[in-house]
């Protein structure tokens, strides 16, 4: 059996409808109308030990809601969840011991106390043996440089420091599974890279299973072999990242620097998607045209200074999926692995 099993998971929220105006406000005092919002709609997947899975989708797709059900915070409306054999919301306390959670937009540290105090508190909460605590702190310190701010109150930390502290806090009790809800949100490039290498380290060397949600596709590209893509509460793709590139990435982009400015550039099967000075970004389908064909056609008509070909970026691919509402069933034969 897999470490995490999700079967036909659904979550609905009842939202009180606000009625307009003063009379509406008064009316809603006595008679409330509710609308039902379906945040997660029949999601199924399973995750094995040691996997690192990117759980992605646009805002409001149901990512965080799923994470909150997996961690036991929210109670599902229907469907089943097993995390290492436990039903999270029924056995919250036992589940808490086997998972670590980071919410990028919140902190689990005590705001007003020096950072080290929160770690000491977690040591007591999870009853971490002193030796293990020391080892973990030493390791986290090595990669995350916690030392430089351990004595600083959490409210005075920079976002990058706070995130480092938060992820260390989530891992102090040696959880089997780590849930990361937007762990790199708002971080600069250096801080992001640091977070990523730490996550990689934890996954590789400690075998911690990692599930992360993010909007930053480079997080996914650099960290995950597998990606679960959801939209409107449903799984749209579940599989390897390379596969989505292969199957979906029929598009190539040719970047051409012309010698002079060309106003009326056009070529069959090529779409200008961007221009900047004498540079044009040309989109084409690599199954219809080859790059060399296009280059020779262009160079026949115009003077070319420089040329390069861009691979499809995962971000662009995913945008395509959302915007054009491609049903992935058609695109992928192996839509889900379940």
């Amino acid at each position: 059996m897999s470490l995490i099993e999700v079967r036909h998971l659904c979550k609905e929220f009842k939202i009180a409808k606000r009625q307009e105006g003063l009379t509406g406000a008064l009316r809603s005092l006595f008679h409330r109308q509710y609308t039902t919002k379906i945040a997660v709609n029949d999601i199924s997947f399973s995750i094995g030990t040691g996997e690192m899975v990117g759980y992605i989708g646009p805002n409001g797709a149901g990512k965080s809601t799923t994470i909150k059900m997996l961690t036991g915070i929210l109670v599902p409306s229907s469907g089943e969840i097993r995390v290492n054999g436990l039903i999270p919301y029924k056995e919250r306390r036992r589940n808490a011991r086997q998972i670590g959670v980071v919410f990028g937009q919140r902190t689990q540290l005590w705001w007003d106390l020096p950072t080290i105090e929160s770690f000491e508190l977690l040591k007591q909460i999870f009853q971490i043996p002193p030796d293990r605590y020391r080892q973990n702190m030493a390791l986290f310190n090595e990669i995350l440089d916690l030392d430089e701010f351990l004595q600083t109150p959490v409210r005075q930390l920079s976002l990058g420091q706070r995130m480092r502290a938060d992820i260390a806090a989530a891992l102090l009790h040696d959880p089997k599974i780590l849930f990361l809800d937007e762990p790199t949100i708002g971080l600069d490039v250096v801080a992001k890279e640091r977070m990523r290498s730490f996550i990689r380290e934890i996954n590789k060397n400690r075998g911690v299973t990692v599930i992360l949600t993010t909007h930053d596709m480079s997080d996914i590209e650099k960290l995950c072999q597998r990606m679960i893509l959801i939209d409107k509460g449903q799984v749209m793709y579940d599989g390897e990242l390379t596969k989505i590139k292969e199957t979906f990435g029929k598009t190539r982009i040719l970047i051409v620097d012309f010698e002079e400015n060309i106003d009326d550039f056009s070529l069959d099967g090529v779409e200008v998607i961007k221009q900047e000075g004498n540079r044009r970004w040309l989109k084409f389908n690599r199954e219809v045209h080859t790059a060399s064909q296009l280059i020779s056609q262009i160079s026949e008509k115009y003077e070319i200074k420089d040329i390069s070909i861009q691979d499809p970026e995962i971000e662009v691919l995913i945008r395509n999926i959302y915007e054009h509402n491609y049903t992935l069933d058609q695109v992928f034969t192996d839509k889900t692995r379940i």
Partner: peptide, 12 residues
């Protein structure tokens, strides 16, 4: 604030 979430993630 939603910080109540963390209280659900503790073994106490």
């Amino acid at each position: 604030t939603g910080d109540i979430a963390f209280e659900m993630l503790r073994p106490y």
